[in-house]
């Protein structure tokens, strides 16, 4: 057990250092993150300034909201692309000649990359929102950070699910894009779910796809820490469910490879 944990820590640490060393990758993502946060912030400034509709949040709230949403999207390593390469080329089978499980390998690498990205994106993202709005958020930054970590883990696991689906449907981009569309739409990346029609709000609450973005984004302007604690438990539950689903699918992938050779 100790040796296995050391191995995962080493793999994650390696990926962490590798991510931090890729300056072009980090700078381009950070640049895109800042650009989109400001563009959407300005978009909301213009809408709220018109005053034609009452929103249950102010301009500072919505800028923090957008900053957190974009942070989750841009800080997430694109692990599905690695899995796509391995699944579609059949290389996934050749990973089985090593004493490490393919899923464990990719998860450890993903966690390492994610940790490196979050370490940079979270303080920079919060600083950006603070200087952009000139105000601290109404909600707890600690809870928001926790939600961001849960959401990023969920996002990574959904990417892995999309990657593994390629074993049967011979395509990874399509299932990933479908998931991403649902996640962005139901999660309310640019427009908070509270503005949606009732049926959409119900769907957003009923699926992890919606909660993934919605909870971290709204936590930043929700001062009720009791509510945040309940939502954190809900999200943790979804992390467990999706993790179990991922293990189940991986079992199927292993079985498929052992019968068909990848």
């Amino acid at each position: 057990m100790g040796a296995t944990l050391r191995l995962y820590a080493a793999l994650a640490g390696f990926s962490f250092r590798n991510h931090l060393g890729s300056w072009r990758y980090i700078m381009s993502r950070l640049g895109a993150y800042i650009f989109f946060t400001i563009i959407i912030g300005e978009f909301w400034r213009a809408i709220i300034a018109q005053g034609t509709r009452h929103f249950p949040f102010g301009i500072d709230d919505i800028i923090w909201y957008c900053g957190v949403g974009q942070l989750i999207v841009f800080a997430s390593p694109r692990i599905f692309m690695r899995i796509e390469d391995d699944v579609l080329s059949g290389n996934i089978a050749y990973h089985l000649t090593r004493p490490v499980d393919y899923l464990e390998l990719r998860l450890a690498e993903g966690v390492g990359g994610l940790a490196a990205n979050l370490l940079l994106f979270m303080p920079l993202g919060f600083a950006l929102c603070y200087f952009y709005t000139g105000a601290m958020p109404r909600g707890s930054i600690g809870y928001t950070a926790l939600f961001i970590i849960f959401a990023s883990l969920l996002h990574m696991m959904f990417q892995i699910l999309a990657g593994f689906s390629g074993v049967w449907i011979h395509e990874v981009q399509m299932p990933y894009r479908i998931y991403q569309k649902f996640m962005l739409m139901l999660g309310g990346l640019e427009v908070p779910v509270s503005v949606y029609p009732a049926v959409m709000q119900y769907l957003a609450w009923a699926t992890p796809l919606g909660l993934l973005l919605m909870l971290p984004c709204t936590a930043i302007f929700t001062p009720d820490t009791g509510q945040q604690a309940r939502e954190a438990i809900l999200m943790f539950g979804w992390v467990g469910v999706i993790f179990a689903l991922m293990l189940m699918l991986y079992g199927r992938v292993r079985k498929y490879i052992s019968l068909n050779g990848g």
């Binding site: 040796a3 050391r6 191995l7 080493a10 793999l11 390696f14 090593r98 004493p99 490490v100």
Partner: peptide, 9 residues
């Protein structure tokens, strides 16, 4: 190689 050394303990 460094990674493989970790994998093979």
């Amino acid at each position: 190689f460094d990674l493989l050394a970790k994998i093979y303990d």
